[in-house]
C-alpha cells in the first residue's frame, strides 16, 4: 500500500513539474522586432518591423518566422515607397518567412534563468526565392520570458532584388538583418 502511495506521489510530482517548468512546448510572440541596415559611403538605410510572428518548439528546436514586408517602417516615406514598389514588389510578394531549427535546443535551459547560445540553420524565403541561412542566436531566459537575438546578412541579388545602377552606390550588397524577439510559453 505504501509503495502505491509513494509511486502515485512521485508520478503526480513529476507531472506537476513537467507542467510548470515550461521547459517543453511552444514558445511564441506576435510582436518580435526585425531591423535591417544597409551601409554605404553614400547613405545608410534602416527600417524596422515590430509585428514579427515567430515561434519555436522547445522539444524539437523547430523555429518559424513570418514578417510582412510592407510593415517595415523607414525614416523616410520615399525610401519606404521605393523599397516596396521597386525592389520588394510587396503587393505581389507580401511576406518573408523563415523555417529552420535551433540546432542545440538542448543547450538552452528554458527552466533556468541564464544566457545560452545555439546555432540556427534554416531557409529564408523572399520574393518566392528560398536560400539557406545560418547564424548564432543568443537566448536570455528570465522570469519565464525567452529573449532571442541574432543577426545575419542578406545579399539582395540572391533574392532577385534588382537594384538599378543609378542607385546601386546607395544600397549595400550585404544587408544586415537583426532579429530581437521575446517569446512566452503558449502550450
Amino acid at each position: 500500500m505504501n509503495k502505491k502511495i509513494i509511486l502515485f506521489a512521485a508520478i503526480t510530482t513529476l507531472g506537476f513539474m513537467a507542467f510548470t517548468n515550461h521547459s517543453g512546448g511552444v514558445y511564441k510572440t506576435n510582436t518580435g522586432n526585425i531591423n535591417f541596415f544597409s551601409h554605404t559611403a553614400v547613405e545608410d538605410i534602416t527600417a524596422d518591423n515590430h509585428k514579427v510572428k515567430t515561434a519555436f518548439d522547445a522539444e524539437t528546436g523547430k523555429l518559424q518566422f513570418s514578417v510582412l514586408i510592407k510593415d517595415f517602417e523607414f525614416p523616410k516615406a520615399l525610401m519606404q515607397e521605393h523599397f516596396n514598389e521597386n525592389y520588394m514588389e510587396s503587393t505581389t510578394y507580401p511576406k518573408s518567412t523563415f523555417t529552420g531549427t535551433i540546432d542545440k535546443m538542448s543547450a538552452v535551459n528554458l527552466a533556468k534563468d541564464g544566457t545560452y547560445k545555439s546555432p540556427i540553420t534554416g531557409k529564408l524565403t523572399m520574393k518566392d526565392v528560398t536560400k539557406d541561412v545560418s547564424t548564432i542566436a543568443t537566448f536570455v531566459v528570465k522570469g519565464g520570458i525567452v529573449n532571442a537575438k541574432a543577426t545575419f546578412t542578406v545579399n539582395p541579388t540572391d533574392y532577385h532584388i534588382a537594384i538599378p545602377k543609378t542607385v546601386a552606390a546607395k544600397i549595400s550588397n550585404e544587408i544586415k538583418v537583426s532579429v530581437d524577439a521575446d517569446y512566452t510559453h503558449v502550450h
Binding site: 511564441k28 509585428k51 510572428k53 515561434a55 514586408i69 507580401p94
Partner: peptide, 20 residues
C-alpha cells in the same frame, strides 16, 4: 499592411490582418 502568418507555418497559429 497585409495578412501575416500562413497555414504552412503551423507553430505560428492564427493569421492576423495587420493595420499600422
Amino acid at each position: 499592411m497585409g495578412c501575416n502568418g500562413s497555414e504552412e507555418l503551423d507553430l505560428l497559429g492564427s493569421k492576423d490582418v495587420v493595420l499600422s
